[in-house]
């Protein structure tokens, strides 16, 4: 059965017809061609498909597209203007927080939510905060450093804008 849904994706309004069973991750990747959101496990363990749904990190492989009707969705493609970096993207680049890049979008989307809730996390808090996102390449040391750098950068930005 088809359902019409309207939602905002990376600031743009989208209306589409979707099947009841269409998973949000497939809607994003295949209907919207936003292929930065990846599929790694199908069982909501790896976090490669993490997006922001109304500002909260969500695993889009375990969410029906039809339920996102009316939601505001942000994917990796929508967190910084073309050619610029969000502080978390910059952190991952500066601290070598990525190797193959496959987990990276999900890891970054999760980190945004993490820093929203806890703008100044310790190493321990970062490790627990990204525990739903698997990386097979980096050993996590540099991902932790990347998020720490971003936290400091975002704190500074906040101070200068206040």
């Amino acid at each position: 059965m088809k359902h019409e849904i309207t939602l905002t994706i990376n600031g743009q309004s989208v209306t589409a017809e979707v099947d009841s069973r269409l998973l949000l991750v497939h809607f994003i990747r295949e209907n919207l061609d936003l292929t930065g959101t990846h599929i790694g496990c199908d069982t909501s363990n790896c976090g490669a498909c993490t997006i922001l749904l109304n500002g909260k990190s969500v695993k889009s492989c375990t969410y029906l597209a039809v339920r996102a009707d009316g939601a505001e969705i942000t994917t990796i493609e929508g967190i910084a203007a073309e050619g610029t970096n969000h502080p978390i993207q910059q952190g991952f680049h500066d601290q070598h927080g990525l190797h193959c890049g496959f987990c990276t979008p999900g890891m970054i989307m999760r980190s945004i939510d993490l820093l929203n809730n806890n703008p100044n996390p310790t190493e321990e808090e970062i490790r627990w905060g990204i525990s739903g996102n698997l990386c097979r390449c980096t050993g996590y040391n540099n991902i932790v450093k990347s998020i720490r750098q971003a936290a400091e950068e975002m704190q500074k930005e906040k101070e200068t804008t206040v």
Partner: peptide
């Protein structure tokens, strides 16, 4: 990779 523009097989 940081911008979600990697091109993997899928």
């Amino acid at each position: 990779f940081l911008h979600g523009k990697g091109n993997y097989v899928d």
